[in-house]
Amino acid sequence: MESNQLLEIIYLLEDSYIGEYVRGSLWLFPVIQSFHLIGLGILGGAVVIGDFRLLGILMKTETTSYVIRVTKPWFNFGLSILILTGIPLFLSEAVKCYYSRAFWIKISCLLMGTIFVYFIRNPIVLSREENFFMKILGVLSFSIWVVTAASGRWIGFS
C-alpha cells in the first residue's frame, strides 16, 4: 500500500512541468547530463584529493585539515551542480528511475555519502590532528562516492 502511494507521487513528478519540458526536448536531456558529468568531475576531484590525503597517498607534507579545508568549497560546488542538474534529469524519467535498482542504490549512496562527509568526515578531520582512524574515513568516503557515480551511470543501462 505504502509503495503504491510512492508510485503515485512518482507519476506526479514525472508529469510535472519540468519533467514534461525536459522529456519534450531532443537536446535538453543530453545537455543537462553533460553538465551533470562536469559536476561529477568537480566533486570527484575534491573527493579524490581529500580522501587520498586522508589515506596518506597524496600531499603528505600538508596537514589533513588543510587539504579538506581547500577541497571543501569545490565539493560543495560540485554537489550543487549535481543536485541542480540531477533533479530535472530525474523528473524527466521518474517512473523509469522508480523501477531501476541502480537508481535506488545511487540515491542511497548519495544520501550516505553526503551525511558522511558533512557530519562525520569533515568535522572530525577539521577538528583533530591526523591519526590512523582518518584512513578509515578516507576509504569509506571514497568507496561511497565511487559506488554513487558508477550506479548513477548504470541507470542509463537499465
Binding site: G44, V48, V70, A150
Partner: peptide, 30 residues
Amino acid sequence: ESAHVLFITIFFGTLLFVDLRLTGYGFKNL
C-alpha cells in the same frame, strides 16, 4: 563505460585543482 566515467572524474577533477593552483584559487600553501 562506467570505468571510463570514473577515470574522467579522476582526470578532470585533479586537473581542476592543478589549474586552480595555477590561477591562484586553491592550495596557495604549495
